[in-house]
Amino acid sequence: MRIGVYPGTFDPITLGHMDIIRRGAKLVDELVIGVTTNISKSPMFGDDERIDMVRREVAQIDGNIRVVGFNSLLMDFAQREGARVIVRGLRAVADFEYEYQMAGMNQQLNDNIETVFLMADVGLQPIASRLVKEIAIFGGDIRKFVSPSVREAVVERIEERGMRQGDTKS
């Protein structure tokens, strides 16, 4: 059985992530979505919230897909899951430079696991979770970038935490 891992923070999961998940699921017998916390980022949603959000979103996708949280080196996680492939999405040249370096380091850690890069759909390439959050915090419309349920969760979190910035309409 070919197992692949698609890791990320998914804070929040975007339509770009969903595109890579749909396409990645076709390449392997089982796709494990590894939800992790990147220590260099400040997540809007907690680990369990992000895992639940991703599970709800991928439930509609055909294929053998599992969502698992992890807090370890990616290659250790992939090995524990029995993966032979790491799936990574690319949006732009800047992504490639970072991902190329990471793939090289990961290969040094475990050369039995290959990294496969998928280009995001051209219409989804500019989408980044960080930018989605920023747009939402400033009151912008994020409907083009996330599903309706994710949009609702983001807006609700911003309101809960009083994070709204910029001019507010009265």
Results as ranks from 00 to 15, higher is better:
Gly4Gln: 05
Phe10Asn: 03
Asp11Arg: 07
Ile13Lys: 02
His17Thr: 01
His17Asn: 02
Arg22Ala: 07
Leu27Met: 13
Val28Thr: 10
Val35Asn: 02
Thr36Ala: 12
Ile39Gln: 11
Ser42Tyr: 00
Pro43Thr: 06
Asp52Phe: 00
Asp52Glu: 13
Asp52Thr: 09
Asp52Asn: 12
Glu57Lys: 08
Gln60Thr: 14
Gln60Trp: 08
Ile61Thr: 10
Asp62His: 03
Asn64Glu: 11
Asn64Arg: 12
Val67Ala: 06
Val68Ile: 13
Val68Trp: 06
Asn71Gly: 13
Arg84Lys: 12
Val87Tyr: 02
Gly89Phe: 04
Val93Tyr: 12
Asp95Arg: 09
Asp95Ile: 09
Phe96Ala: 11
Tyr98Leu: 12
Tyr100Pro: 11
Gly104Ile: 15
Met105Pro: 12
Gln107Leu: 15
Gln107Ile: 14
Leu109Tyr: 14
Ile113Pro: 14
Glu114Ala: 14
Leu118Tyr: 12
Ala120Trp: 07
Asp121Ala: 15
Val122Cys: 13
Val122Tyr: 11
Leu124Asp: 08
Pro126Tyr: 07
Ala128His: 02
Ser129Val: 00
Leu131Ser: 02
Ile137Pro: 09
Ile137Ala: 12
Phe138His: 12
Gly139His: 07
Ile142Trp: 10
Lys144Gln: 13
Val146Glu: 11
Val154Trp: 02
Val154Pro: 06
Glu160Cys: 07
Arg161Lys: 13
Met163Asp: 11
